[in-house]
Design a protein around this nucleic acid. Structure first.
Lengths: 169, 169
DNA sequence: ATGGTGAGTTTGAATTTCCTACTCACCGGT
DNA sequence: ACCGGTGAGTAGGAAATTCAAACTCACCAT
């Protein structure tokens, strides 16, 4: 009788490493990157924070939405405030931290408008107080210039991490 | 014998509506909002586009990563180019459209740095060509002012949609 | 008493993700 | 020629999530 000897698994091809690059993008996404979370924030920033409105406008299943809302409230991104006692009814509103995610939504929307739609059939236009349609641009807070890919360089701070990955094992 | 009469289901409390608010944020997220997709973009923008590097630096399961890469390539956000024939080896690189998502990553990172970390233990610092650390700010491309929540107003274009949801049914 | 609304919860089925291992093509050393 | 190693994935089954539809509870209006 013969057994298939278990040939020690390849050492190079392992599962997802348990310590990926430490990064605030990853951390932020762990909080608001789940399906629907950013759409909740969109609606809430539009002033539209009641449960059934969220269900309708986002198109999310009610139970999932309830889970997301709990998480966003716990994270301090939303607050749940009563807009009526007897009958008790609630409304979700962005906290300061939540409002500070709006720039993310705006740049994302601008990208979608530019790359996902042909012509000018934008489903929503944002007007700036200056009187013009808002075309959001990301700039350097110091010099004020628009940020371009070739004008920035990343410097990882965590030990063992370079821009190219962990220092050669 | 008695049957439980099926009491026609409530009309008010239905499942997720099949036509949520039309919105480029939603469309963009449908493309790049799945788990890991934006982290792929992060690595690829860092110039780090080989499969095994992505696995290590992102911490994603290999099969999921393969699926995401296919999707991003199909969407025209990444390209898969050979960096060596014999043996064939590939590398993923951002297209123009992919690079234009960098502002989203930057604002997200800045938010994470500000709200998810106490003190200044940022895992990564970005330097702008002007010589300073980059603190990205979203501004109005016309007037140049920083965009603040209270300075913008949204105008949905789709018929039947106001900022507050579908026109009263 | 009946029906309606807001804000969720429950339940079971359908999808996705995750983990571990496996493949294929090639290279480099002995 | 054989052995081990690397890059870039694929395969298969268990575990976790999502989804749709219905159900609950408290209250108000008729």
């Amino acid at each position: 009788m013969s057994w298939k000897i278990k040939p020690s698994p390849r050492l190079g091809a392992m599962a997802a490493t348990k310590d990926p690059r430490p990064c605030s993008i990853a951390d932020a996404l762990a909080l608001v990157g789940e399906k629907y979370s950013l759409l909740v924030l969109r609606e809430v920033c539009l002033g539209n924070g009641r449960f059934d409105q969220l269900v309708r406008n986002i198109g999310a299943p009610r139970d999932i939405l309830a889970t997301r809302l709990r998480r966003l409230v716990d994270a301090g991104i939303l607050t749940r405030c009563a807009y009526s006692e007897r009958p008790q009814r609630f409304e979700y509103r962005p906290t300061r931290a939540g409002l500070e995610l709006e720039p993310v939504l705006m740049t994302l929307m601008a990208w979608g408008d530019r790359h996902l739609r042909k012509d000018d059939d934008r489903p929503m236009v944002i007007e700036h107080i200056c009187g013009n349609e808002l075309l959001p641009v990301v700039t350097c807070s110091v010099c004020g210039d628009e940020v371009r890919h070739e004008d920035v360089s990343a410097h990882p701070q965590a030990p063992g991490w370079t821009v190219a990955g962990p220092t050669a094992a």
